[in-house]
Simulated assay, not measured.
Amino acid sequence: MFLRRSAQFVTPALGMPNLWFYMPAAFGMGLMGLVALWRLTAVLRGRLDLLEESVA
């Protein structure tokens, strides 16, 4: 995995570890994966009402 290897190095301009530099992107990918999994289980269970956006 790219992030695992790049975490060992330091960002030249900022002088901070790449792990902290890429952490928001990794967190976003993980969160998006959880939402996709939640939506997939909702569709497979037939709970399409969970996927509809509420209109106020």
Rank of each mutant, 00 (worst) to 15 (best):
M1C: 12
M1L: 13
F2Q: 10
L3F: 08
R4V: 13
R4I: 15
R5A: 05
R5M: 14
R5S: 11
R5F: 09
S6W: 11
A7R: 03
A7T: 05
A7N: 02
A7K: 01
F9T: 02
F9I: 01
F9Q: 00
F9V: 01
F9A: 10
V10F: 11
T11C: 11
T11N: 05
A13V: 03
A13C: 03
A13S: 14
L14A: 08
L14H: 06
L14W: 04
L14C: 05
G15Q: 00
G15T: 00
M16R: 10
M16A: 13
P17N: 08
P17S: 08
N18T: 01
N18A: 01
W20Q: 06
W20Y: 10
W20K: 05
W20D: 03
Y22N: 06
Y22Q: 09
M23D: 04
M23H: 14
A25H: 15
A26R: 05
A26Y: 06
F27G: 11
F27P: 00
F27A: 07
G28F: 15
M29L: 04
M29S: 04
M29K: 01
M29A: 05
G30I: 06
G30N: 05
L31I: 08
L31F: 15
M32T: 06
M32V: 05
M32N: 08
M32Y: 04
G33W: 01
G33K: 00
G33T: 04
L34R: 03
L34C: 05
V35P: 01
V35F: 08
A36C: 04
L37Q: 03
L37W: 13
L37N: 04
W38H: 08
W38I: 08
R39T: 10
R39C: 09
R39F: 05
L40H: 04
L40D: 07
T41H: 06
T41A: 11
T41N: 14
T41G: 11
A42G: 11
V43T: 02
V43R: 03
L44V: 10
L44Q: 09
R45S: 11
R45M: 13
G46F: 11
R47F: 09
L48W: 08
L48S: 10
L48D: 11
D49F: 07
D49A: 09
D49Y: 09
D49G: 12
L50S: 13
L50H: 12
L51K: 00
L51T: 13
L51I: 04
E52D: 15
E53Y: 08
E53D: 14
S54K: 15
S54W: 11
S54A: 15
S54V: 13
S54F: 12
S54H: 15
S54R: 14
V55T: 15
V55A: 14
V55Q: 13
V55I: 12
V55D: 13
V55Y: 07
A56L: 06
A56S: 10
